[in-house]
Amino acid sequence: MVTEPKSPLVLLSGLAADARIFTPQKVAFPQLNCPRWLVPERSESLNDYTRRLAATLDSEPCFIGGASFGGIVALHLAEHVDAKAVILIGSIISPSELPLYARCARPFRFLVPVIPIRLLQFLIRPLTIRIVRRHAPIVYGFASQFRDSDPVVFKWSLSRILDWSIAPNVSCPVFHLHGDRDWILPLRYTSADRIVAGGGHLLSLTHPDEVNSYIRQIVSQLTSPSAAADDSNEPGQDG
């Protein structure tokens, strides 16, 4: 039986998502912390935002990671906390890995403030009814999280994705898990350490066993007394 380490595990949800995306991981990892998104200050940079976020976390060494946009934030957060590793789940490691549609949208990022988020949240409500939950739980889950998301946080996050131009200098190892059927952040634009066959963008929900196993392997490896001496069985690579 595997004994979970005491080092905290911090996972950040993606754009228009919340801690519900990591429900299977909460069951597997009692030490998991999924912090709520802070309300960003006007035009706040990723670096300034993650500095504020770091101040809300315990100062002890931890494993941090995230899904999609949460992975990007985790990379920047690693500059402000004592991170043992960064774990990317369906995310990317640098702006050069953004898909073509995101790069093409950059000139139009000035339109983000006028996106009618409240109206879109109202229009998406039919996807949050019980019958959708029964027959299309992934669609229901995504719609429910978007419906409940903070428009201010959503617009800030989208703006930071579109103006992301410099990858942070991460001194700890970076591990990357990605699905081969991710249409939001397609695999062809990035280089993952481990690929989940049939996995889409919501790996933590659709393939929890693979995600949990990957996290457990990384955490166990880096908390083992022989971790520094044994690099041959790494599930990923240094960032």
Rank of each mutant, 00 (worst) to 15 (best):
S94F: 00
R109F: 00
F69H: 07
S91I: 13
A83F: 00
F110D: 02
P95I: 08
V81R: 02
G66P: 08
G70P: 13
V81Q: 07
L77V: 09
S94Q: 15
P95V: 07
V81N: 05
G90Y: 10
A67W: 10
P95Q: 07
E97N: 14
G90S: 09
H80C: 07
L75T: 07
H80W: 10
A78F: 06
I87S: 10
R109H: 04
L88N: 08
L77T: 10
P107Q: 03
A105K: 07
A85H: 01
A85I: 04
A74L: 07
Y101M: 09
A83Y: 00
I72S: 10
A85C: 03
A78L: 07
K84S: 12
H76C: 04
I87N: 11
R106N: 07
S68A: 14
L100H: 01
H76D: 13
L98I: 02
V73T: 13
G66R: 08
P99A: 12
S94M: 10
R103T: 09
F110V: 02
E97Q: 15
R109M: 11
K84H: 10
A67N: 15
A78K: 02
S91L: 12
A102G: 00
D82P: 00
A102H: 11
I87G: 01
R109E: 06
V86H: 05
H76V: 00
E97H: 15
A85V: 01
H76G: 04
H76N: 12
G66F: 02
G90H: 12
F69R: 00
L100P: 00
F108Q: 02
H76T: 12
G70Y: 08
R106S: 10
E79Q: 15
P107S: 03
P107T: 04
A105Y: 00
P99E: 08
G71R: 11
F108S: 02
